[in-house]
């Protein structure tokens, strides 16, 4: 783990309401797909906490995908090339890339695309072709879809039907799992989507790894703020038991 003072080297707008911030420090932060970093700009005492982000890219520069939701993410989304970003990490437990010969099916919603694009690139580099199901409310909620199409079999869904299949990610997911049981599911997105992906996967007994999102203070297991109740009746901490969990650790199989 490192704490780096970095500078923003590039700000991209991969969709109307999303920013991709690339930053570089003296050394890279060696995060694996699904691991995360804590990020804060030099904005004084408010907001006081850093924000947790999975890395989209990791190497001589790192990058995060930002959607302005609250005050912290809005400040981050407004940052410019040259601005200072304090980044520490890598933190947490990422995806297990050992797919044991199973075909990876990646399922993303919204900013949940960030760790999965990184994961798809790792599979691609290892010569494994993934299916990538990517859902958004509209065609404007699909940042980085073109990058995905270059390296994976992209299946897009939108709730308004403006791009790809009309509806949600679970419909193509259920079809794919029905066609091929030698598969493994990796997902990241809103809670409701993760729950649905878990239901579909657990119903047919396909292994499924989910990356959860939670507001965090410390990011490293010390403040005990990011608790979620696990299916075994004990609290799990998103920052160090996760953020990636086996679906069955978090969601009961649908009855």
């Amino acid at each position: 783990m490192k704490s780096l003072r970095t500078r923003i080297t590039e700000v991209l707008t991969p969709a109307p309401n999303y920013k991709l911030l690339r930053f570089a420090g003296d050394e890279p932060i060696p995060a694996r797909p699904g691991e995360f970093v804590m990020v804060r700009g030099e904005w004084g005492v408010h907001p006081v906490l850093p924000r947790a982000f999975s890395l989209v890219e990791c190497g001589e520069f790192g990058s995060i995908l930002v959607k302005p939701i609250g005050e912290g993410t809005t400040l981050l989304a407004d940052m410019q090339v040259g601005d200072v970003l304090t980044v520490f990490g890598p933190l947490g437990k990422g995806y297990d890339l050992d797919n044991a010969g199973r075909r990876p099916i990646l399922v993303a919603g919204g900013v949940g695309v960030a760790p999965l694009l990184y994961l798809a690139r790792e599979f691609h580099a290892a010569g494994t072709r993934c299916v990538f199901i990517y859902g958004g409310r509209t065609e404007d909620d699909l940042p980085l879809a073109d990058e995905i199409a270059e390296i994976a079999d992209l299946v897009v869904t939108t709730e308004n039907g403006a791009r790809g299949e009309k509806g949600r990610v679970t419909a193509p997911l259920a079809r794919l799992l029905d066609e091929d049981s030698n598969t493994i599911v990796y997902s990241c997105g809103p809670d409701g989507m993760l729950h649905a992906v878990s239901d579909v996967s657990q119903a047919v007994g396909i292994p499924c790894q989910l990356a959860l999102e939670a507001p965090m203070a410390c990011g490293m297991g010390t403040c005990k703020g990011c608790a979620v109740m696990g299916t075994d009746g004990t609290y799990k901490y998103v920052c160090y038991d996760g953020p990636v969990f086996e679906a069955a650790e978090i969601f009961e199989a649908a009855s």
Partner: peptide, 8 residues
Amino acid sequence: PPRTAETA
């Protein structure tokens, strides 16, 4: 949970 909330 939730166990934390940010304030001013």
